[in-house]
Amino acid sequence: MTRIAYREPEAMTQQARELTNARGNLNVYRALGNAEKVFTGWMVAGNAALTSPVLPVRLRELVVLRTAYLMDSPYELGQHRDVARTAGVGSDEISAILSESDWKEGSFNPTERTVLQLATELLTTSSVEAETFDSVHTALGSEATVELLMVISRYAGLALMLNALDVDLDESARLPIPPRREPS
């Protein structure tokens, strides 16, 4: 049971309310909306990550699921299982990511596998072997590598907040994936 009262969108500033409603008015946003002096900036940063055209949505969702699993966040797993399915991740692939090492054998392409390796090292040891980092950097380039690290960063940090507040998974509402911006 969520440990704090939800902040309903009607009680938010206009910008925070619009961002919350556009993202499905999920429990996570109504819980974090309690921090009204910093919530809008956090939402703006999230919007930028969700609408950026740089990372393929499928790759992003693989990493989000792996992060949710390693951070032990039932809320992120509950939301992003469905988002990942929408992004073309199969049920077998989801099961593989949500296991200790089955993803090493699954149907993932070499880039996806090396990205999952990086996420796993980073979230279990707080660092990354030079060889792992170089293979991701070579495959993705600098811009997408930094975005990838920002995705891990955001969802790892979010998992802490969700777990601390013990936010209930929404019964049916799921994160709508906004259209991506055009590449600049």
Binding site: N34, A35, F133, V146, L149, S153, L160
Partner: peptide, 30 residues
């Protein structure tokens, strides 16, 4: 923590922890 900070400040405290916990991962990876 809730007794000391109340809901708003406690959530904001979590935001600070979240930001720096995540950022550390980026910095360490690079």
């Amino acid at each position: 923590a809730q007794a000391v900070f109340g809901d708003e400040a406690l959530t904001e405290l979590l935001m600070i922890i979240s930001c720096y916990y995540g950022l550390a991962l980026v910095l360490n990876a690079v």
